[in-house]
Amino acid sequence: MSTEARVGNLAANDWDGGAFPYRVGHRKLGMWLFIVSDAMTFSAMLIGYSYARAASDQWPTPFPFNPSIIFSTVMTLFLLASSFTMVMAVRASAANRLKAARRWIGATMLGGTVFIVLHSIEWSHLLGEGLRPFGVSAGSTFAKEWAERWPQAPPLFGASFFAITGLHMFHVFTGVIYLGVVALRIGKTRHEDVEISGLYWHFVDLVWMFVFPLIYLMSVDMTK
């Protein structure tokens, strides 16, 4: 029996106990609680980064608007578009249009995969320029430029960049696999299962809405 159908037989007052006070199944509530805890994890990292960033007068701002910021904006657009296709998948699933739901989830996975590929290109580019998790590699392009412009730069730029975007990329990666499983098993799932995978995907998108301005836009090169 569905959650809502069972709820109909239970006490009218949510606070009497023994009811479904949130009117959601235990799996969906579990995903919401996971999202809350994951939001705390990302907040801790972003707050730590923001503190170090704002307290330093020598924090490097090495991303030129063209191409770095334009590139990461395109990544953002793909992630936003994939969130839209995901909500359309949930809508199709609610109407029991399973084939359409599977196609929409496929489009979402495509958006996520493009995001990962673009992100990897960007990472390998930055590593090639000499950016490392704790500083810059000696003799690289970045090392020369940074020694001139930010001689006392804290070594945390690479650490915060790789840790935060890496953790986010890991979430996108697991999300694509999760959605793949849901899409393959769509004939056996309940609607709520599709909705739960959608919650996870939208959360990954939501986190990027903070990572993008804090990591990328705050690092835009002010001189170019």
Partner: peptide
């Protein structure tokens, strides 16, 4: 916007 519409929280119960 994402939480309210995409994650559908606007249409959930107030308790949640």
């Amino acid at each position: 916007l994402i939480v309210a519409y995409f994650m559908h929280l606007k249409f959930e119960r107030l308790s949640l």
